Simulated assay, not measured.
Amino acid sequence: MGSNGKPSKRISLYLQVKDTIIKRIQEKIWKPNSMIPTENELMEEFNVSRTTIRQAISFLVQDGILEKKQGKGTFIKPGIFVGSLGKLKGFAEEAIENGVFPSSKLLQVQTTGNLQAEKSTLKLPIDENIVVIERLRFANQTPVAIERSCWPNDIGKLLMNEDLNSATFYEILERNGITLKHAKEKISAINATLMEADLLGIRRGQALLKMERVSYGNDDRPIEFTTTKFRHDTYQYSIELMR
Rank of each mutant, 00 (worst) to 15 (best):
L164M: 07
N98V: 01
E224Q: 04
N98P: 02
I202S: 10
A145D: 05
R175Q: 11
P222W: 08
I57N: 02
G64M: 07
E44G: 02
I130D: 00
L60W: 02
T234I: 08
I65K: 01
K123I: 06
I239V: 12
E224S: 03
T111H: 14
T121F: 03
I36F: 01
N191A: 05
I190T: 11
T112N: 04
Q108I: 11
Y14E: 09
G79Y: 03
K119R: 13
E147C: 04
P78H: 02
R148A: 09
V61C: 05
I190K: 14
K87H: 11
E44V: 06
S58H: 09
Q206I: 03
N40K: 13
K186N: 09
V109I: 12
G90Y: 03
T20M: 09
G99I: 06
N40W: 07
S188I: 12
Q206S: 14
H182T: 14
V132H: 03
I190Y: 08
Q141E: 14
L209E: 02
I11M: 12
S188G: 10
H182M: 11
A92Y: 05
E162F: 05
S3A: 13
V132I: 14
L173A: 03
Y237M: 01
T74A: 04
D163Y: 08
A197T: 04
D63G: 05
R213P: 00
T112F: 06
E97S: 06
S84I: 00
N40I: 15
Q141T: 13
V48C: 09
L159S: 06
N140E: 05
S84L: 01
L164T: 03
N47Y: 02
L122S: 01
I172S: 09
D154K: 00
I80G: 04
G5R: 12
Y216M: 07
S188P: 01
T74G: 05
L66G: 03
S8W: 15
P125Q: 12
T38Q: 07
Q108K: 15
A139K: 07
I155W: 11
N140H: 01
I36R: 04
E94L: 10
Q206C: 01
Q206D: 13
Q110E: 14
K105N: 14
Y235F: 13
V131S: 08
E128R: 00
P143C: 12
R231N: 06
T52K: 00
E174K: 13
K157D: 07
S49F: 15
H182C: 07
K184I: 14
E240H: 09
T20L: 08
L199C: 10
N191I: 09
K28Y: 11
T142E: 15
N33C: 10
K186P: 11
G156L: 05
L13P: 00
K28I: 09
T20W: 15
V82W: 08
A183E: 11
